[in-house]
Design a protein around this nucleic acid. Structure first.
Lengths: 332, 332
DNA sequence: GCGATGTGTGAAACCGGTTTCAGCCACTGT
DNA sequence: ACAGTGGCTGAAACCGGTTTCACACATCGC
């Protein structure tokens, strides 16, 4: 099929070892030999086989990135950041989506170990700790993102929602709101809980009434149905904090259907600043999560961790900030 | 670091060959031997090294998927479809984004060849034909999606915009519009041209005036600036066909800023039906492209092509259809 | 009772690179 | 003239699996 190094060697009249040296620029090579070898490589359109290389060197130049679902608008920038960082240092990344499916997750883990990846970044909580520890047993570096505290041997990236949330509450309070609803993510999700607690606590601290507080899931429809439930009572809040932009968009949909105007009747605040937040009608006020940075930081965390001989993990914190657009205004 | 097959063999008191046979379920194995081997595998948490396997078998169970940019909302479903199809048959996919960068694209090609992928699906026109022919020289199957006619040896997937466009024009004509603007994609893009031509021809055929016809690029801002240019004249269309949903969303933004109401003052139609189309305010009427199907079809095309000994390509056509939402209504 | 057939296993070659080790040649210094 | 050194190259072992080939043993049919 494709050519081998030995063929190249034979045609160039040298040994395979020399071809390897020319291609990898290791050791001294006379200009003449180098010329001959490269000439043959060009003629034959020879590409060296990466599997053979990995096997021979014992190294793998591969990293894994585990997410739940590509279609989730949270991930693209994270992926881009991670891939770019890896690429820059000559590494490749294997992208895996669990699709929230347990057997599939198992297969992914197995595949990552078999591929002998150097490190894995786990960006979804749809994968449990014991499963991940298989990775560590295999000597693979692990970094979690936003899935809560983990063991000593893994690094974690935590998004500090605190600051963004404070800014958002300040913003809402300054606009004269007295009461705000919270539509949080699902209750089995670490991040969702953190956010909900921070919102509730923050609102109380500013003497705003956090009511109602609803648990939802991370889908658009969930935001919509939460809003419908909320609107069926006649004691309505003047602002809604949503656990994600997706929830917020769903909420806005439902609000509009119900005839409520945004922001005149009710203000809406999201979290994430996904790329569509600013295209929403009205453009969504939201708490920005530096998603591309999440990706690059995750890779750097792995890279750094792997350079240490003693594999101890480190913790990284990323800041959030409020982005004010037009879905918030003074309370009615 | 991790264990080898020989270790497993030694501990189980069998030969490496037998371990291989147990793990791959090739050949007959006595239940007793099998039990012993699997027991040791479990104890040692042994995983076989995929690089060694690939090298030994000469097969690679890998496919490449080349796109331009993950953050483009067109791609997630395509990726999902492709990955799912590959996964189902026990294959892995290497996802590559060109980021519209030439040197990067070169590296990607090299990497794909070195990885000895069986086939590659090219979903972006940001990669030129001669570059791709390197793949074919290496004996790798290639399928293009929507990048125009290609050689005999590659398969192509074409999206038939015709039907969706006809439905859309019918829809608009039925609503009493007499004239419609077209904001097309960039003029160096095969798909953009196809769409533009189909729109212009279709409109004329129904005696609608296609004016103005503007070339733009596939970014949101482009849709916005096209609209601003359009609105500065005082002879305004009552409907706008946009070359993509992204353009449409940008256009809607700009229209709203300019005080035009959608759909009362002006109707907007997009193309793609990206996941956010139905979250737009108002929900966007658009021509749906079966993106997940694009992905699965691409994989199947490769799979089928590779099963043939004579590598001749085939052409696949995917239909589009109008999805009526609320961004279109009767002409003023 | 003997060849044919089927089951179960090990030794060894092989996949396509990398790397170690050793050696050659041409200088350099004395 | 000879040891020492630096530049350059080849032979061969090695990475960790798979697969061919050979062979042992059991069973079956006639």
């Amino acid at each position: 099929m494709s050519h081998t190094m030995r063929e190249v060697a034979k045609r160039a009249g040298v040994s395979p070892a020399t071809v390897s040296r020319v291609l990898n620029k290791t050791s001294y090579i006379s200009v003449e030999t180098q010329r001959r070898v490269l000439e043959v490589v060009r003629q034959l359109k020879y590409f060296k086989n990466v599997h053979a290389r990995r096997l021979a060197t014992g190294r793998s130049d591969l990293f894994g990135l585990v997410i739940s679902e590509i279609a989730n608008p949270y991930f693209p920038e994270v992926i881009r950041g991670f891939q770019a960082a890896a690429w820059d240092r000559g590494f490749d990344v294997i992208l895996c989506n669990t699709q929230y499916d347990q057997p599939r997750t198992k297969s992914i883990l197995r595949k990552l170990i078999e591929s002998d990846v150097r490190g894995v970044a786990v960006m979804t909580s749809s994968i449990d700790k014991p499963t991940v520890s298989e990775l560590m047993d295999a000597g693979i570096g692990v970094v979690f993102c936003n899935v809560g505290p983990a063991g000593k041997l893994v690094s974690t990236i935590s998004i500090d929602y605190q600051r963004g949330i404070e800014q958002a509450i300040e913003h809402i309070a300054g606009l004269g709101h007295r009461r705000a609803a919270v539509i949080a993510g699902p209750d089995d999700n670490h991040t969702a809980i953190t956010i909900k607690d921070a919102l509730v606590a923050g609102l109380k601290k500013r003497n705003l009434d956090p009511f109602p507080v609803i648990n939802s899931n991370y889908h658009v429809d969930a935001g919509a149905s939460a809003v419908r439930a909320m609107l069926s009572t006649n004691d309505k809040p003047t602002a809604i904090f949503c656990g994600s932009d997706l929830i917020a968009l769903g909420a806005m949909s439902a609000l509009e259907e119900a005839g409520a105007r945004i922001p005149e009747d009710i203000s809406v605040i999201g979290i994430d600043d996904i790329s569509f937040a600013f295209l929403a009608r009205p453009p969504l006020t939201t708490i920005r999560v530096p998603r591309e940075r999440v990706g690059t930081t995750a890779f750097e965390a792995l890279d750094r961790m792997l350079k240490l001989k003693r594999r101890k993990g480190a913790d990284y914190y990323l800041e959030t900030e409020l982005v004010v657009r037009r879905s918030t205004s003074t309370a009615r």
